[in-house]
Amino acid sequence: MKKHLAIYGKGGIGKSSTASNVAAAMGEKGVRAMLIGCDPKSDSSITLLGGKRIPTIMDTVRKKGSIKEEDVVFEGFNGVKCAEVGGPEPGVGCAGRGIIVAVQALQKTSSAMKDSDVIIYDVPGDIVCGGFAVPITKGMVREAYIITSGEYMPLYAANNICRGLRTLHTPLSGIICNEREAEHEREIVEKFAAALGVPMLAYIPRHKIVQNCERAGKSVIEGEPESAMADVYRSLAGRILTEKNKKVPDSLEDEDLRKLTR
């Protein structure tokens, strides 16, 4: 069964490092995985490609008028297919429109998209505008995962994303906790997930290995395959592959969310 999923969460919370590690762990198991980075910064797949940036879909469309798969889809570590939407420099143009155009262009030309068992869309920030929702609204994504820590602001953003998912009738499959050393972090995020009616799929401890591997342009699966961190990602990848318990979430009221984090 094919899985088409999007990973959402507050900016800087660890979406890209989680997405690329999960993709690498899936690749290790022989699952055909594809990672589509939707951030104009185009850095989702960088740790799967030895620290190199790949030409983005939008830059290619801009130069050539159209794209061919070989121009924009590159094979990274463990066979993970990587593509980056790209987009404007900060402060100009419309990144949301970029996602609309790029994702549709990719869908038209990409055989990797058809052949992959799992496609992961790494979507920046919250669902900030219609463009950022396009992987969902065009039916390319069938489920969402949200990454958060136990701090109030990432939870607030996560809750906001749930509002977006409700509007778009898109199910949430689970919450992933990326540790930020908040007090009672695991408990808070577990309660949040329970309140939404979905499982907390992983608790990713804060560890310098992740930073070190990123600096080396590698995923943890590649850079520190024997580490406990690598196993955390492997087990998360396993959960994502088997997770069936998804539901369109009801977001919490602000006051309830506050109580939860106290």
Binding site: G96, R97, I100, C129, G130, G131, A133, T137, L168, H169
Partner: peptide, 10 residues
Amino acid sequence: SMIIGENFHR
């Protein structure tokens, strides 16, 4: 409507 990503089908 297209720039903001309106979804006709929905």
